[in-house]
């Protein structure tokens, strides 16, 4: 039968890639920002060369990255939403949460500064001013780490953001920056993505350096009880690798050649209370 032969041929062509041998494969669920910054493109090959593991990186929003891990659909997670992470750790879904690095968020907006944010040092005060002025603000609206932080800030500021000045993009940081730029709106972005888009976006940094704007990344191992076939051993090896002196040094210098400043600050061994 021609049809059978075609199917057999197709299977050999398509399935030639290594399947199976999952114990040598580590599934890392992480956020889009680590992928978009290019950091994982440096760290993953380093890890694979050192340990012989193959890493499959699933870059999604922090909410989804943790949800996948909680179902046992990943082996280790690198995320940046401390409050959400602690909830999963308290439930026993994620184990051994350790801080890896931080960078920071910045509040950006049009140079004309319709909400009068220039000179403001407090992120909460800045959000109150945006709401009071009814200045346009673009939110990620995608349950990512950035979105989680933004929602927490609105809550602390005691403001309930509303349309029409509050716009939800439902997209990644890059696309959201584009929309904010187009609408001459304010937004909250991680500095790495902002630097990557600096050439395309006319928005300026208006508020920076406030403690609530700190963006802390942690690595967590997946509880093997979450589902079948979790590679707990591989997950732990990758988590330990992220905290090794060698990787922490790579993180310290990553981005300097391209942006003239590092994108992340390594903080292995530190605790949340240290910040």
């Amino acid at each position: 039968m021609v049809a059978c032969r075609l199917v057999a041929l197709a299977l050999t062509l398509g399935l030639a890639a290594p399947a199976g041998a999952q114990s040598k494969t580590v599934l890392l669920s992480t956020t889009t920002s680590t992928q978009d910054s290019g950091l994982l493109d440096v760290l993953v090959p380093l890890f694979e060369g050192k340990t012989g593991y193959t890493v499959k990186t699933i870059s999604v929003g922090t909410g989804q990255a943790l949800a996948l891990a909680a179902r046992g659909e990943a082996d280790v997670t690198l995320a940046h939403a401390p409050a959400l992470e602690k909830k999963y750790v308290a439930e026993g879904r994620m184990l051994n949460r350790r801080l890896v690095m931080y960078n920071d968020f910045v509040v950006i907006g049009p140079a004309a500064d319709p909400a009068g944010l220039k000179g403001e040092r407090s992120a909460l005060a800045a959000l109150k001013k945006i709401a009071a002025a009814g200045a346009r603000f673009v939110s990620r609206g995608d349950r990512s780490g950035t979105h989680t932080l933004e929602l927490a800030l609105w809550k602390q500021a005691g403001v309930e953001p509303k349309a029409p000045w509050y716009i939800e993009s439902g997209q990644g940081m890059g696309a959201t920056l584009g929309i904010a730029d187009d609408r001459k709106a304010c937004t909250i972005t991680d500095r790495a993505t902002y630097l990557a888009f600096q050439k395309r976006v006319t928005l300026k940094v208006l508020v920076e350096g406030d403690r609530p704007l700190l963006n802390i990344y942690s690595v967590m191992e997946v509880n093997p009880a979450n589902g079948p076939r979790v590679n707990a051993a591989g997950g732990k090896v990758l988590a330990d690798f992220m905290l090794s002196p060698e990787v922490q040094h790579v993180i310290k210098t990553f981005g300097v050649d391209k942006y003239g400043q590092p994108l992340f600050v390594p903080i292995a061994g530190k605790k949340d209370e240290d910040f």
Partner: peptide, 23 residues
């Protein structure tokens, strides 16, 4: 998915999975 009915195949996130979906 690992917890799905075909989880034992262990082909999620491989080219084989894309071939399957596209077929």
């Amino acid at each position: 998915w690992r917890s799905g009915p075909l989880g034992g195949w262990e082909i999620l996130y491989t080219p084989a999975a894309i071939v399957l979906a596209q077929a």
